[in-house]
């Protein structure tokens, strides 16, 4: 599974990835509704919402907010392209992290307490999950004959999942954080079932909120693609794996209430980190 690095491909990805991400969000909402005994919105509701937001009058607190919204989107698209085209894994992570950081800074640049609280919590989450992601990339490196390029796991004959089971569990937790799912949705909740006042994104509205939504769709597509890497040959197994993981997130989301940021930090730096480190050390040991 190697995706050719052509201009046409870039255009296709930039256009289709958010639609795919929106579809994933739509399915998530539908499943959640059914689990709660509701019919739920149409599958494409997220797309309709975004289009409506884009046509609203822009309202803001200051100029800087706009810059951060665009930076968030631009770096998210860049991260997705780096991933899909199999570029260097650590650089992909840095770009991905900077995208989230732009979102955080966008939340912090306004004089709004709710937005600031959300941003602070989002930073906590970043610090909590970043080591797991870097260790995951180290895992890829060790399994794939010492290459940091993401094209290596795409072409590997043996599925990554079999060599990196513990890191995969760690990654699922990161996935829950990135998808803003309970119990990890402390910065801002994806669905409106946890909070009265929205956190991180409260001071964004109209078209600028739409930009954040679109970036989130890209993020969903990116994460889906990333899970496929764990079982890339044949790719359909990876797609099933990714679908199951996303379904698992929806189940978890509906089964838990949110926890505190310090709890999540401690949990990630003990439980999840131990899993990740164990997996990495075991790979070192196996390669000697």
């Amino acid at each position: 599974m190697i995706i050719p690095q052509t201009p046409l491909m870039v255009v296709l990805l930039v256009v289709l990835a958010p639609l795919f991400g929106a579809l994933l969000c739509g399915i998530d909402r539908r499943i959640t509704a059914r689990a709660q005994g509701r019919i739920g919105p149409p599958i494409l509701q997220a797309v309709y919402d975004t289009i409506k937001l884009l046509r609203k009058e822009p309202m803001l607190l200051n100029r800087v907010q706009i810059v951060y919204a665009y930076l968030h989107l631009a770096f998210m698209i860049l991260a997705m392209l780096l991933l899909v085209f199999g570029q260097d894994s650590l650089m992909f992570l840095f770009v991905f992290a900077f995208s989230t950081l732009s979102l955080v800074l966008g939340g912090m640049c306004v004089r709004s307490p709710y937005s600031r609280i959300g941003s602070q919590r989002e930073i906590m989450l970043m610090v909590a999950y970043e080591p797991i992601l870097i260790l995951l990339m180290i895992g890829f490196y060790l399994v794939n004959g010492h290459s940091f390029m993401l094209s290596a796991p795409m072409t590997a004959a043996k599925p990554m999942l079999l060599s990196l089971p513990l890191l995969f569990i760690g990654f699922l937790v990161v996935l829950a954080i990135k998808m803003q799912k309970s119990p990890f949705d402390i910065a801002t909740s994806h669905h409106a079932h946890q909070e009265i006042v929205k956190g991180l994104t409260i001071e964004y509205s109209g078209p600028y909120l739409a930009i954040l939504e679109i970036a989130h769709f890209y993020e969903m597509a990116l994460l889906f693609f990333f899970i496929v890497l764990f079982w890339s040959s044949p790719a359909w197994v990876g797609i099933i794996l990714a679908s199951l993981s996303f379904f698992l997130m929806t189940v978890v989301d509906n089964a838990f209430a949110r926890l505190t940021s310090m709890w999540i930090f401690k949990f990630m730096w003990t439980g999840a980190l131990i899993l990740a480190v164990t997996n990495v050390l075991w790979l070192y040991w196996a390669s000697k």
Partner: peptide, 13 residues
């Protein structure tokens, strides 16, 4: 860095 950057960019219009 994020904490600090967030603090100094905080501004009203």
């Amino acid at each position: 860095w994020a904490k600090w950057l967030g603090r100094i960019t905080t501004t009203s219009y």
